[in-house]
Simulated scan of single mutants.
Amino acid sequence: MATRLLLLADTHVPVRARALPAQVLDAVAALGPGDLLVHAGDWVHEDLLDDLLARCATTGARLLGVAGNNDGPELHSRLPEVARADVGGLRLAVVHETGAAAGRERRCAERFGSGDQPADVLVFGHSHIPWDTTAVRPGGGALRLLNPGSPTDRRRQPACTLMTAVVDGGALHDVVLREVVREVVGRG
């Protein structure tokens, strides 16, 4: 059975945005039983974690998240620095920060693609820059690196973004970077 993934990072609610855009909330609502919402850190306030957990409980989806560098002690007490899950035979790891872009594939392949818990896919955040590359793991094989960007704070990127994907038969399919259209509040 296929599992749909919704990948988010760097939501920064309520600092960069008062709330998640409607498009993001619609994507969460579209998840079904067994699907997975992945959040790669920088939630900023634990109310967002509680809200997304409640929304996932309503749809039967699961949530896998990590704390980021802008998350306070409350979130760090509830979320790990690194999260791992087996999603239909695909080994998924999540972390907030992976360091500079230069050398990222090598560093991540060494840290997450080998050892006693090698990952097939690493989801990360921090930079607000969408990323989709493949690294060669020590000893062979591939580690897919995905950063969904930010749905609320595009920084120097052309648009706010999120990412969707499907896991089927132990493999990742249909990875799509989606532009998030920010709502414009009427003037006047």
Rank of each mutant, 00 (worst) to 15 (best):
A22S: 13
G188Q: 11
D168R: 15
R144L: 00
G113P: 14
P138A: 07
L64D: 00
R111D: 01
E105V: 07
R107K: 06
S150L: 07
P130W: 01
G188S: 15
L53S: 13
G188D: 12
A85L: 09
V166S: 09
P118C: 03
L8D: 09
V13G: 15
L177N: 15
V44T: 11
H45P: 00
P158Y: 07
R187M: 06
P151A: 11
C56P: 09
W43N: 03
R104Y: 00
A109C: 12
A171E: 12
A27M: 14
D153P: 02
F124S: 14
R155Y: 03
L122Q: 10
L52W: 09
G149A: 04
A159K: 06
G72V: 07
E74C: 01
V176Y: 06
P14F: 10
R178H: 08
H12S: 05
V167H: 05
G32T: 05
R182L: 10
T134V: 15
L122H: 09
T133G: 11
L8A: 12
R55C: 04
L52G: 14
G141R: 06
G169P: 10
W43I: 04
D50W: 08
P21Q: 09
A2E: 06
L145K: 15
M1R: 05
L90C: 07
G41V: 09
H45I: 00
P21S: 07
A27L: 12
A165S: 11
L48G: 13
R91Y: 02
V167A: 06
N147W: 01
C160Y: 00
H76S: 04
P130L: 02
H128L: 00
T98P: 08
N69E: 04
D116W: 00
A159P: 01
A171M: 04
W43G: 03
V136N: 13
A171S: 13
D47M: 13
R156Q: 05
V66W: 02
L31V: 10
S77M: 03
E97L: 03
T161H: 14
G72N: 08
H76P: 00
E46I: 09
A9F: 05
D50I: 01
A2W: 02
A119M: 02
R106F: 05
D42H: 03
R178D: 04
G89L: 12
D174E: 10
R155I: 04
R91F: 01
H128A: 01
L145W: 11
F112L: 00
L7Y: 10
A61D: 14
V13A: 13
R137A: 11
L162I: 14
L7M: 11
L6I: 13
A22F: 04
L63S: 03
R156D: 04
A17P: 15
R156C: 03
V95S: 04
V136Q: 12
L90V: 08
C108G: 06
G60A: 05
L53Q: 13
P148C: 08
R154G: 03
N70E: 01
S114N: 14
A9L: 06
H173I: 00
